Computed example of a mutant assay.
Amino acid sequence: MDETPQEITSLVGREVYSNNGVFVGEVEDIRLDLDTEVVNGLAVGELNPDLFENYDTGRRGVIVPYRWVRAVGDVILINDVVERLKTTDDEESAVV
Protein backbone atom coordinates (compact mmCIF):
# COMPACT_ATOMS: atom_id res chain seq x y z
CA MET A 1 0.00 0.00 0.00
CA ASP A 2 1.23 3.50 -0.85
CA GLU A 3 1.85 5.44 2.39
CA THR A 4 2.69 8.71 0.62
CA PRO A 5 0.74 11.58 2.22
CA GLN A 6 -1.90 13.11 -0.04
CA GLU A 7 -2.54 16.82 -0.41
CA ILE A 8 -5.88 17.72 1.14
CA THR A 9 -6.68 19.73 -1.98
CA SER A 10 -6.65 16.48 -3.96
CA LEU A 11 -10.19 15.88 -2.64
CA VAL A 12 -11.52 18.93 -4.48
CA GLY A 13 -13.22 17.93 -7.71
CA ARG A 14 -13.86 14.33 -6.71
CA GLU A 15 -17.33 12.92 -7.13
CA VAL A 16 -19.22 11.88 -4.00
CA TYR A 17 -21.44 8.79 -3.95
CA SER A 18 -23.50 7.16 -1.22
CA ASN A 19 -22.45 3.67 -0.19
CA ASN A 20 -25.48 2.51 -2.21
CA GLY A 21 -23.93 3.95 -5.38
CA VAL A 22 -26.14 7.05 -5.66
CA PHE A 23 -24.37 10.15 -7.01
CA VAL A 24 -24.53 12.93 -4.39
CA GLY A 25 -22.39 15.72 -5.86
CA GLU A 26 -18.85 16.96 -6.31
CA VAL A 27 -16.42 18.23 -3.67
CA GLU A 28 -15.93 21.97 -4.08
CA ASP A 29 -14.08 22.74 -0.87
CA ILE A 30 -12.88 21.27 2.41
CA ARG A 31 -14.06 22.36 5.86
CA LEU A 32 -11.19 22.35 8.37
CA ASP A 33 -10.92 22.79 12.12
CA LEU A 34 -7.71 24.79 12.27
CA ASP A 35 -7.32 24.41 16.05
CA THR A 36 -7.20 20.60 15.87
CA GLU A 37 -5.90 20.41 12.28
CA VAL A 38 -8.69 18.01 11.32
CA VAL A 39 -10.97 17.84 8.29
CA ASN A 40 -14.51 18.05 9.63
CA GLY A 41 -16.56 18.41 6.46
CA LEU A 42 -16.76 18.43 2.70
CA ALA A 43 -18.48 21.26 0.84
CA VAL A 44 -20.37 19.44 -1.91
CA GLY A 45 -21.83 21.21 -4.94
CA GLU A 46 -23.14 20.13 -8.34
CA LEU A 47 -25.74 18.25 -6.32
CA ASN A 48 -27.91 15.41 -7.55
CA PRO A 49 -31.24 17.20 -8.05
CA ASP A 50 -33.22 14.05 -7.25
CA LEU A 51 -31.72 13.87 -3.74
CA PHE A 52 -32.12 17.53 -2.86
CA GLU A 53 -35.36 18.46 -4.62
CA ASN A 54 -37.11 19.18 -1.29
CA TYR A 55 -34.27 21.31 0.08
CA ASP A 56 -33.41 24.90 -0.67
CA THR A 57 -29.70 24.45 -1.34
CA GLY A 58 -29.49 27.55 -3.46
CA ARG A 59 -26.46 27.60 -5.69
CA ARG A 60 -23.94 26.78 -2.99
CA GLY A 61 -24.49 23.14 -2.02
CA VAL A 62 -24.27 21.27 1.27
CA ILE A 63 -21.71 20.45 3.94
CA VAL A 64 -21.26 16.71 4.47
CA PRO A 65 -19.75 15.88 7.88
CA TYR A 66 -16.43 14.12 7.36
CA ARG A 67 -17.44 11.37 9.79
CA TRP A 68 -19.92 10.22 7.10
CA VAL A 69 -16.99 9.45 4.76
CA ARG A 70 -16.48 5.70 4.39
CA ALA A 71 -13.76 5.61 1.72
CA VAL A 72 -11.64 7.94 -0.38
CA GLY A 73 -10.24 6.84 -3.72
CA ASP A 74 -10.99 7.94 -7.26
CA VAL A 75 -14.39 8.87 -5.80
CA ILE A 76 -15.54 9.50 -2.23
CA LEU A 77 -18.05 7.13 -0.64
CA ILE A 78 -20.23 8.37 2.20
CA ASN A 79 -22.85 6.79 4.42
CA ASP A 80 -26.24 6.58 2.77
CA VAL A 81 -27.19 10.24 2.42
CA VAL A 82 -30.72 9.37 1.32
CA GLU A 83 -31.49 7.91 4.74
CA ARG A 84 -29.83 10.85 6.47
CA LEU A 85 -31.93 13.33 4.50
CA LYS A 86 -35.13 11.54 5.45
CA THR A 87 -34.35 11.93 9.16
CA THR A 88 -35.73 15.31 10.15
CA ASP A 89 -34.11 15.23 13.62
CA ASP A 90 -30.62 14.88 12.19
CA GLU A 91 -28.84 18.21 12.48
CA GLU A 92 -25.43 16.90 11.41
CA SER A 93 -25.81 18.07 7.83
CA ALA A 94 -26.23 21.70 6.98
CA VAL A 95 -27.55 23.20 3.81
CA VAL A 96 -25.34 26.22 3.24
Rank of each mutant, 00 (worst) to 15 (best):
T57E: 01
V12Y: 10
N79W: 15
E53G: 06
N20F: 08
T88Y: 14
T4I: 11
R14T: 06
R84K: 11
T9D: 02
L42A: 01
L11S: 02
E37T: 15
A43R: 05
V64G: 10
S93T: 08
G41L: 03
E7S: 10
D50L: 12
V44C: 06
S10W: 09
A71T: 12
R67M: 11
N79I: 13
M1T: 12
L85D: 00
L42P: 01
E7N: 12
E15N: 11
V64I: 15
V95C: 13
Y55C: 05
I63V: 03
V38N: 10
V75Q: 13
D2A: 14
D80M: 14
N79G: 13
R14A: 03
R59M: 05
V44N: 06
P5A: 00
I63N: 05
Q6P: 04
G41E: 03
T57Q: 00
D89W: 04
G21K: 06
N20M: 10
N40H: 03
A71E: 14
Q6D: 04
G58T: 09
N48M: 05
D74L: 08
D74M: 02
G13Y: 06
S93R: 12
D33L: 05
D56F: 13
V27W: 06
L47S: 03
F23R: 15
V96F: 10
K86A: 14
V81H: 07
D35S: 14
F23E: 04
R67P: 05
E7R: 11
R84N: 06
V64E: 07
D56T: 06
E91N: 11
P49D: 08
G45L: 09
R31G: 00
E7W: 11
V95E: 14
V44K: 05
Q6K: 10
V72F: 10
N40E: 02
D90M: 03
G13N: 02
E91W: 12
D74H: 03
I8N: 10
A94P: 03
V82A: 06
L77G: 04
A94I: 13
T9H: 01
V62L: 00
D2L: 07
V64M: 07
L34E: 15
D74K: 04
G25Y: 08
I63W: 01
R70D: 12
I63M: 01
E28F: 04
I30H: 11
E28M: 02
Y55S: 05
Y66V: 07
L34R: 06
I8F: 10
D74R: 00
L34P: 10
V16T: 07
V75Y: 08
P5M: 01
V27K: 07
E91P: 07
R70A: 14
V62R: 00
N79L: 14
D50P: 01
L47H: 02
A71D: 15
V64A: 08
I76A: 01
T88W: 13
D35V: 15
R31Y: 03
V27M: 06
A71Y: 12
K86W: 03
V81I: 15
V64C: 09
N54A: 09
I76Q: 00
T87M: 13
D50R: 06
N79T: 15
G21T: 03
V16C: 04
V16E: 08
D50E: 13
A71C: 06
L85F: 00
Y17A: 01
M1R: 00
L85N: 00
V81F: 15
P65H: 10
E46Y: 11
A94W: 02
N19D: 14
V69P: 11
